[in-house]
Amino acid sequence: MQVLLLMYQDEKAMQKLPREEYGKLHGAFMAYVDALKKARALVGNHGLRPTSEARTVRKDAVLDGPFAETKEQLAGYFLLEVPDMEAALGWAKRHPSAPYGAVEVRPVWT
């Protein structure tokens, strides 16, 4: 079965990590992905740019920042390759759920 592991962290705390700590953590993440690959368990993985770079589309409005409502829950995702944030927002607005819920757009670390 396919399972999505959603990784949540305190962004501010992570940004304050001393370089050496961060280096070790980065190494640990590399090793983890390696282990997943060797186990033939990895289908895909992505790091996301911080919430300060997120935009959320609701009905037709575009809001700065990540999704932040308690009445709605994560139901799915799309990963896309487009020239820029405008294009990504365009796709977000077209999503059938945009009128009824919210679509958060987050740049991905490449």
Binding site: A75, Y77, V103, T110
Partner: peptide, 12 residues
């Protein structure tokens, strides 16, 4: 550039 669209809906 890569972007992630996260879809939020009211499950109930």
């Amino acid at each position: 550039m890569q972007y992630l669209l996260l879809i939020y809906t009211n499950e109930k």
